[in-house]
């Protein structure tokens, strides 16, 4: 495990790129690829990827093996191959795979190339809906918690937090991203706890004792809201926390 993985998944503006090491033996690459894909579970299912092989030489069988693992076993879609090796290029051409040049970014999903025709008569159906898309780079994961938070109880999340239940007065929720409550918020919610100023707090009944977003704090006006307008959202506007009816925009 001291060695660096021979496979890396990178999010780029042009989409997900699988970067393959140029030096390591093909066996290691296949092992790392399988491990990486298995570790990530359904995370990459349905994602369009470009294979970046660098100067690596791959023959037709090897390239087919890589493509088969990525596409048929794990449900990703290869949109193209990036290579500087002539041998790999011809292997790709033989398999009818789109070759991506540095100055020509990967074609979009509508121009997907069929590669690595499966050896079986019918292609294996993935067990999961292939429409699931990966979390775009730079976005936080989302956690769903199904419970009611009572006075004295606290919950912290490193991502976005969705609560299916009430958050009562005296309870505290803290999340690095957004906080969404399918219930009443009567306690304290702190969104964007690591400084994300565009974080928001949404609740079906927004009646908090206090709201915090990034470095801003707002407290309730103290008067009991009799006619709750329904779902409301709190966010930062002009450097202060404002509350608005959800769905207005």
């Amino acid at each position: 495990m001291t060695d660096k993985m021979s496979i890396a998944f990178r999010g780029t503006p042009a989409g997900l790129v699988v970067v393959v090491d140029e030096e390591k033996p093909f066996k290691t690459i296949m092992a790392d690829l399988v491990r990486k894909l298995e570790d990530s579970g359904y995370f990459f299912v349905g994602a369009d990827v470009t294979l970046d092989l660098g100067s690596r030489d791959l023959d037709r069988t090897e390239l087919n093996q890589v493509a088969e693992t990525i596409q048929n076993k794990h449900g990703l879609v290869i949109t193209g191959v990036k290579t500087t090796s002539e041998r790999t290029k011809s292997a790709a051409q033989a398999l009818d795979v789109n070759i991506v040049h540095e100055d020509h970014p990967a074609p979009n999903a509508s121009a997907k190339t069929e590669i690595a025709p499966p050896t079986h008569a019918t292609p294996p159906v993935p067990e999961y809906p292939p429409t699931l898309s990966p979390i775009p780079p730079g976005e936080l994961p989302t956690e769903i918690v199904r419970r009611t938070f009572r006075s004295g109880q606290q919950y912290e999340s490193a991502g976005n937090l969705v609560v299916l239940g009430d958050v009562n007065a005296g309870a505290e929720l803290i999340a690095a991203g957004d906080i969404i409550i399918f219930g009443a918020l009567r306690g304290m919610a702190f969104a964007g706890s690591t400084g994300k100023t565009d974080a928001m707090i949404l609740a079906l009944k927004l009646n908090p004792t206090q709201l915090r977003i990034a470095d801003r704090v707002a407290r309730s006006a103290g008067d009991v809201v009799e006619n709750n307008p329904g779902p409301e959202v709190a966010f930062i506007e002009n450097d202060q926390i404002v509350i608005d009816v959800w769905g207005k925009h």
Partner: peptide, 12 residues
């Protein structure tokens, strides 16, 4: 009511 809420959490 606030204290009752706290206690309910502890009982659960």
């Amino acid at each position: 009511v606030r204290d009752a809420d706290r206690i309910i959490g502890l009982v659960e």
